[in-house]
C-alpha cells in the first residue's frame, strides 16, 4: 500500500515539476509547483518525516509559493512568447548537457547507495517525532539555528531595502 502510494506521489511530483518547467504561463507554473510540493510532503510522510512534511506544506506550499503567486500577479507577467532567433542555438548544447548530467547522476546512484548501505544502518525509533528533531535543533545544532535566525532577519531587512522605491 505504502509502496504504491510512494510511486503515485513520485509520479505526480515529477509530472508537476516537468509542467512547471515546460509550460509557458507562469501562473500555471506556480499552481503546478504547489501541487508538486504537496506530493513531496506526502513522500515525506511516507518516509516517517512528519515534522518535515508538515513544514513542507506550511512553509513551502504555504508561504513561499504564495509569495511567488503574489509576485506573478503583481508583475502581471505575460506568458512567454515562443522564442526564436539566435539564442535558440544554445538550447541544443544545454539539452545535451542536461541529459548527460542526468545520465551520470543515475549512473552514480547505485554505486553511491551501495557505498552508503555498506555501513549498517542503526535504527532508532520515532525519527518523525517533532520532539526528536527539536532536541537535535536546540542542542547539537544550536549555533547554526541561531545563525539561521540572524539570516532571516538580514533577509527581511534586505527585502525591505530592495523593495522600497526610495531609500
Amino acid at each position: 500500500m505504502t509502496t504504491a502510494l510512494f510511486y503515485l506521489f513520485a509520479a505526480l511530483l515529477i509530472g508537476s515539476a516537468l509542467f512547471v518547467v515546460l509550460n509557458r504561463n507562469p501562473m500555471y507554473s506556480v499552481v503546478a509547483l504547489v501541487f508538486g510540493f504537496a506530493n513531496l510532503a506526502g513522500i515525506y510522510f511516507l518516509l516517517e518525516a512528519y515534522f518535515i512534511g508538515a513544514l513542507q506544506v506550511l512553509v513551502y506550499a504555504g508561504a513561499i509559493m504564495v509569495l511567488f503567486l503574489f509576485v506573478v500577479m503583481l508583475l502581471d507577467v505575460k506568458p512567454d512568447k515562443p522564442r526564436r532567433g539566435l539564442v535558440h542555438l544554445d538550447r541544443w548544447w544545454f539539452a545535451i548537457l542536461v541529459v548527460l548530467f542526468l545520465g551520470l547522476l543515475l549512473g552514480i546512484v547505485p554505486g553511491a547507495v551501495r557505498l552508503i548501505t555498506s555501513v549498517p544502518a542503526g535504527h532508532e525509533a520515532d525519527i518523525g517525532n517533532v520532539e526528536r528533531v527539536g532536541q537535535a535543533l536546540f542542542t547539537s545544532y544550536l549555533l547554526p539555528f541561531e545563525v539561521a535566525a540572524l539570516l532571516l532577519t538580514v533577509a527581511l531587512i534586505g527585502t525591505v531595502f530592495l523593495a522600497k522605491r526610495k531609500i
Binding site: L47, E48, A49, F51, I52, I116, T117, A121, G122, H123, E124, A125, I127, R132, V133, A136, L137, Y141
Partner: peptide, 11 residues
Amino acid sequence: SNYHGNVHGQV
C-alpha cells in the same frame, strides 16, 4: 535520514 534512522538529515 529515514535509512539511517536518525534526525540529522531532517535538521
